[in-house]
């Protein structure tokens, strides 16, 4: 998980212009939020989030210029006195006052500039930081897209995850990642799985070795990333173990703090796992649309019992 990005990363990604040549590009950005320091410019520094990237646009600069000379100096010096401010970014290619150049040079805070407008920069920079600073984990499993539902298959080694993925590919579904899935939490309730770059489109099948799903099945058979909606856990069939026979209660499992619907499918020779997973995906879609087969059965049963009584 990336705990920070450097100002240099932001600088390169956003194609910014570095105004004060020199150091400071190694400074760390640790928050996703950015700040427009309007209140700070007016001299109100209580709750000033100095640890955020500070963005100054036309409004901020116009306000600053409207102040008397000594006030401008005072505000700029105070804003540049925070050790933890990663950088200042000026939008619309605005001119930067000499006092800002001097003060930032002293404190080593980089001044960056873009020709974009403030709202545009804000949205670009926030989505960049959201992706780069999102909590991340590597999971042992296979991620497939079945009828548009991202399914993470987990289970111990050799249980048949990759073989099931292969069967699903033959049935026209898509592979995202085999064996190692990088999972990022991009919002409070959304997990997105990708494949580590080195393993892109590869599958490992016992007895065949490593095969490439894209060259074998075509570009339509693979995806680079997919939102994960459910977990299917494969486990060896054990006689006498109670398996869910109704599916009345949704079992949830947590990855990075996000709850996902989880089903456990026992594996036994002769059970067609690909079909079971296809149906699990379709059933998940039905539930999302509001139809729950097990619940409906249970309700019908209840009302028929009540009718008798």
């Amino acid at each position: 998980m990336a705990e920070f990005v450097t100002v240099a990363d932001v600088f390169e990604e956003m194609k910014l212009e570095l105004v004060n040549q020199g150091t400071g590009l190694e400074r760390k950005v640790e928050t996703i939020e950015v700040n427009r320091p309007g209140f700070a410019l007016s001299g109100f520094l209580m709750y000033y989030p100095s640890e955020r990237i500070q963005i100054l646009g036309r409004t901020e600069m116009a306000y600053l210029h409207s102040l008397p000379e000594e006030d401008i100096k005072d505000r700029v010096l105070r804003m540049c006195s925070f050790e933890n401010t990663p950088c200042f970014i000026f939008t619309r290619g605005l001119d930067i006052p000499a006092i800002f150049m001097e003060a930032s040079e002293k404190s080593g805070i980089p001044l960056l500039r873009t020709h974009h407008s403030t709202p545009r920069l804000l949205s670009q920079i926030t989505s960049f930081l959201e992706i780069r600073l999102a909590p991340e984990t590597l999971v042992h499993g296979v991620l497939v897209d079945v009828y548009g539902i991202g399914i993470l298959m987990t289970g111990s080694s050799g249980i048949g995850k990759s073989e099931t993925a292969l069967e699903l590919l033959k049935r026209g579904h898509r592979l995202v990642a085999d064996d190692a899935v990088e999972i990022r939490q991009i919002s409070d309730d959304t997990l997105v799985g990708t494949v580590p770059p080195l393993l892109q489109y590869l599958l490992e099948i016992r007895g065949l070795g490593v095969i490439n799903a894209m060259t074998l099945f075509g570009a339509g058979a693979v995806r680079t990333h997919k939102r994960i909606e459910m977990i299917v856990e494969l486990e060896a069939w054990e006689e006498g173990r109670p398996y869910d026979r109704l599916g009345l209660d949704d079992v949830k499992k947590k990855i990075l703090g996000v709850e996902l619907t989880s089903v456990t499918v026992p594996v036994r020779p002769g059970r067609n796992l690909a079909v079971i997973i296809e149906v699990a995906a379709m059933n998940q879609r039905l539930k999302r649309m509001g139809y729950h087969a097990a619940k409906e059965l249970s309700e019908k049963l209840l009302s028929s019992i009540q009718d008798q009584g």
Binding site: M1, L138, S157, D179
Partner: peptide
């Protein structure tokens, strides 16, 4: 560096580089 893979998975191991 905080990135782990299952040692029983060949692709996982190789992805660590």
């Amino acid at each position: 560096n905080g990135k782990f893979a299952n040692a029983k998975s060949i692709l996982g191991l190789m992805s660590l580089g």
